[in-house]
Design a protein around this nucleic acid. Structure first.
Length: 486
RNA sequence: GGGGCUGUACGCUAACCUGGUAGACUACCAGCUUUGGGAGCUGGUCGUCCGAGUUCAAAUCUCGGCAGCCCCA
């Protein structure tokens, strides 16, 4: 079937992922119908496939939270200005990005209200009232919501949006040890969601002091590498220590009768992960959605003409029956598109498995099954389709994760000196991994001279640190990952 | 934070420089026809980002806003 030139420019993606990544990325998430721009800069509409994927991430994370004893709450969207000012570093970190409500109708408010960039301040004001005794602790609450951060950098769909959806875990403990134990558990929990649902690998690390969350004592995160060699922050968990507790008066009377400030944690996973997912797994044909996040896991494309249409469609409904309730399937029975057109469309949308069925298949009681990630085709007997596709979906999920992990490993480069660091950062990108003395001057030099930053101190690389700081040559205290970042 | 570019129908684009009937392709709708990798025919619907200014007349010139993109820090 001949296709007209220009048809591709209408519907398909016009650039190669390897040749123009940022253009490819935008086209992939927009043209696939995953998300779309709206009239508000940097704020997206999530279309059904995109929102379904988020719901999957949300449900999985929420179930894991609940299993771990975390309870959901909800706090207001608007935060009084005086609350934001209570913790000095916090307000300094966020004030440039805060959107304000200043009017109701035509009258000006006495005190303007912030559209939450994060909810520490309004939540902790209540926490101070709710916590009185050691018996009230630990108090482990979470909320699912949207926040607004009016970034000045150019927005990128999902990866850098001005409004995004996330969870905010805000927990309170009597002791630092308990807070630290939770932090480790949460980081594990997030890594599992990334692997099992988003099929994404990342590096678990601690942030440097200059990169840590505004107001936190220590920040931990999972950092991803995108195909363009830039690093992007994934889920995070912060040890707030007693910083917010002191600012907001979150204290309790302990078993020994003494009043003590509590220790707190904050943790989040956001819709940015969907951007990382799209960027990591997609190819020149469009998105590749991990099966666990796919609204349609298997699309059945009937091959029919006017005479055999009814028979073929009946056969297709047998197929969907065979797939059963476990697999989310859809029969594309539209008769105004050719099969080839449909193949291209579903591939762009990233549906993990395609099943083709026509007269040929009816006569052999089989169907053609095609994998989105590898393009592999197989003829499968009707009676075996359910088990076959189920296994294939599992394999795709695993394969995507393994590829993500491999990409991360292959783009992590050991560097011993500043020149090597420079050639990685200024060249193809990826993580430059090497020693750091721990001094802020060296970190600053990386930022100002190379436009890169320390994207975390990987937790599992800090035993027996040897070698020298890549910048100043003094003995290294840590092994760090350095990259340009989103 | 600094600098630059762009905006015409769902999308891609012509007319813009030199002001004067907004045109093609695609999509969409109706009908016919076709269907194993983006088919074909006929007819139809839809548009100058928003606001102001200049002018007899603005897609076109000027200013502002909004939105998108790129480069530098």
């Amino acid at each position: 079937m001949a296709s007209k030139p220009g048809k591709e420019t209408q519907e398909g993606i016009t650039v190669k992922k390897s040749e123009n990544f940022s253009e490819w990325y935008t086209q992939a998430v927009i043209k696939s119908g995953f998300v779309d721009y709206t009239a508000v800069s940097g704020s997206l509409a999530f279309r059904p496939d995109g929102y379904f994927a988020w719901e999957c991430v949300q449900r999985a994370t929420d179930a894991a939270f609940k299993k771990d004893g975390i309870q959901n709450v909800y706090f207001p969207l608007l935060i009084p200005e005086k609350f934001l000012n209570k913790e000095k570093e916090h307000v300094e970190g966020f004030s440039p990005e805060v959107a304000w409500v200043t009017h109701t109708g035509k009258s000006e408010l006495d005190e303007r209200l912030a559209v939450r960039p994060t909810s520490e301040t309004i939540m902790y004001d209540s926490y101070a009232k709710w916590i009185r005794s050691w018996r009230d602790l630990p108090m482990r609450y979470n909320q699912w919501n949207n926040v607004v951060r009016w970034e000045f950098k150019h927005p990128t769909p999902l990866l850098r949006s001005r409004e995004f959806l996330w969870n905010e875990g805000h927990t309170v403990f009597a002791t630092e040890e308990e807070a630290n134990a939770e932090r480790d558990a949460i980081l594990k929990l997030y890594a599992k969601v990334l692997k099992d649902y988003l099929a994404l690998a990342g590096v678990v690390g601690r942030k440097t002091d200059s990169e840590k969350f505004a107001g936190a004592q220590a920040s931990y995160s999972i950092e991803h590498l995108l195909p363009d060699g830039l690093c992007v922050q994934g889920p995070d968990c912060h040890n707030d220590g007693q910083n917010f507790a002191k600012a907001f008066g979150i204290s309790f009377i302990d078993k020994d009768g003494k009043t003590k400030y509590a220790y707190q944690n904050t943790f989040a996973i956001s819709t940015r992960e969907l951007g990382v997912m799209a960027a990591t797994h997609g190819d020149d044909k469009g998105l590749v959605i991990p099966p666990m996040l796919a609204r349609i896991q298997a699309v059945i494309v009937p091959i029919f003409n006017e005479e055999n249409m009814e028979g073929v469609l009946t056969y297709c409904s047998l197929i969907s029956k065979e797939l059963g309730g476990k697999i989310r399937s859809h029969v594309d029975s539209r008769d105004s598109y050719t099969p080839g057109w449909k193949f291209n469309e579903w591939e762009m949308k990233g549906v993990p498995v395609r099943i083709e069925a026509g007269m040929r298949d009816i006569s052999t009681e089989k169907a053609v099954v095609v994998r989105r990630d590898t393009g592999q085709k197989a003829q499968v007997e009707l009676k075996k389709l359910g088990a076959f596709v189920e296994k294939m979906l599992e394999e795709i999920q695993t394969n995507l994760y393994e590829k993500s992990k491999k990409q991360l490993e292959e783009n992590t480069h050991r560097v011993e000196n500043y020149d090597a660091l420079k050639s990685v950062v200024k060249g193809k990108g990826g993580f430059a991994q090497g020693g750091w003395c721990g001094l802020e001057d060296c970190e600053k030099k990386i930022r100002t001279e190379l436009g890169a930053k320390i994207c975390g101190i990987p937790l599992d690389l800090q035993k027996n640190v040897k070698g020298r700081c890549i910048v100043c040559g003094k003995p290294a205290k840590y092994i760090v990952n350095i990259a340009r970042a989103y």
